[in-house]
Amino acid sequence: MSVAATDNRGLMLAMMEPPASLEDEFQQWYDSEHFPERRSIEGFLTANRIVCIDGWPRYAAMYDLSDLEVMRGTGYANISGDNYSRWTDRIMGHVWGQYRAEATQIYPGKALFGDNGACSRVALWRFRAVTETLMTEIVDGLRTLYEERPETAQVRVFRSQQQDAIDCLGIVELHSPWKPAEGQTAVFGAALKHLDLVNIYTRYQRVWGGTYPQQK
């Protein structure tokens, strides 16, 4: 299959974990400042926080973009880089396991998170330093593993130009938990040696204090 990405949707993915001593402040910062800032930018089409239950680092945020040019617009420039808040500078200086990707959706092209309904799990596959040919194998491999299964809500694949190489990211939304059996990853062929991360997430939810019904 072709992996041409003209006019396809974009993605911004951020992964990180705070030290235990910063956990409460990290959640306050993410929920009250960092996440709302990005969610409100024109061209950010979806915004989701997810929590890793198998793998590391523990927290990730995913934003579907109308296209990657959103990341170079004034809306994002106003809250990033030199315009980070003092709170953001403080938190970002302490978190671990940071990984960030600006990516283009190469399969299916324009799908958004949640297009096929709710999911209880999200599987994130990362292949490092891949070629265009290997990306085709990755797309085909993920489709072979997941598509047509009743547990699968949606398979999407993204190409991310990193500073040192090209990464390929597979994001699989699952209606219910499921993972490939031993040996099934052989479907990736030569791309398998580039696989360096398979994390399983569930949706992040925060219940604010005082929102539970009070017993009388």
Results as ranks from 00 to 15, higher is better:
Pro19Met: 01
Pro19Ser: 00
Pro19Glu: 00
Ala20Leu: 01
Ser21Trp: 00
Glu23Cys: 00
Glu25Asn: 03
Glu25Asp: 06
Phe26Gly: 00
Gln27Thr: 06
Gln28Met: 03
Trp29Ser: 00
Trp29Tyr: 00
Trp29Asp: 00
Tyr30Pro: 06
Asp31Thr: 08
Asp31Lys: 04
Asp31Phe: 04
Ser32Ala: 09
Pro36Met: 01
Glu37Gln: 08
Arg38Leu: 00
Ile41Cys: 06
Ile41Pro: 02
Ile41Arg: 08
Phe44Ile: 14
Leu45His: 00
Leu45Arg: 01
Ala47Pro: 04
Ala47Gly: 14
Val51Trp: 03
Val51Ser: 03
Ile53Ala: 06
Ile53Cys: 09
Ile53Thr: 10
Asp54Gly: 05
Gly55Ile: 06
Pro57Ala: 12
Tyr59Leu: 11
Tyr59Asp: 06
Ala60Leu: 07
Ala61Asn: 05
Met62Asn: 06
Tyr63Ser: 07
Tyr63Gln: 07
Asp64Val: 04
Leu65Ala: 14
Val70Glu: 04
Met71Asn: 10
Met71Thr: 15
Met71Phe: 15
Arg72Tyr: 15
Arg72Cys: 13
Arg72His: 15
Gly73Thr: 04
Tyr76Val: 15
Tyr76Gln: 06
Asn78Phe: 10
Asn78Thr: 14
Ile79Trp: 01
Gly81Ile: 10
Asp82Asn: 10
Ser85His: 11
Arg86Cys: 11
Trp87Met: 07
Trp87Val: 08
Thr88Gly: 05
Arg90Ala: 11
Arg90Thr: 08
Arg90Val: 04
Met92Trp: 12
Gly93Leu: 05
His94Ile: 02
His94Phe: 08
Trp96Cys: 03
Gln98Lys: 13
Tyr99Gly: 13
Tyr99Gln: 14
Arg100Gly: 06
Glu102Tyr: 11
Glu102Asn: 12
Thr104Tyr: 09
Gln105Lys: 02
Tyr107Lys: 07
Tyr107Asn: 09
Pro108Val: 09
Pro108Thr: 10
Gly109Thr: 08
Gly109Asp: 09
Ala111Gly: 13
Leu112Trp: 11
Leu112Tyr: 09
Phe113Val: 15
Phe113Leu: 15
Gly114Gln: 08
Gly114Lys: 09
Asp115Ser: 14
Asp115Glu: 15
Asp115Lys: 11
Asn116Val: 05
Gly117Tyr: 00
Gly117Cys: 01
Ser120Pro: 07
Ser120Val: 09
Arg121Val: 09
Val122Ile: 13
Ala123Phe: 09
Leu124Lys: 01
Arg126Ile: 11
Arg126Met: 08
Arg128Asp: 10
Ala129Gln: 14
Ala129Gly: 14
Thr133Glu: 13
Thr136His: 10
Thr136Gly: 13
Glu137Ala: 12
Glu137Gln: 14
Ile138Leu: 04
Val139Cys: 03
Gly141Pro: 04
Leu142Pro: 09
Leu142Ile: 07
Leu142Lys: 08
Arg143Val: 02
Arg143Ser: 01
Tyr146Thr: 03
Glu148Thr: 12
Arg149Met: 02
Arg149Ile: 01
Pro150Leu: 05
Pro150Cys: 04
Pro150Asp: 07
Glu151Phe: 04
Thr152Tyr: 01
Ala153Asp: 09
Ala153Ser: 13
Gln154Ser: 13
Gln154Met: 11
Val155Ile: 11
Phe158Asp: 04
Arg159Ser: 02
Arg159Tyr: 00
Arg159Gln: 03
Gln161Arg: 13
Gln161Ala: 13
Gln162Thr: 12
Gln162Lys: 10
Gln162Leu: 12
Gln162Phe: 07
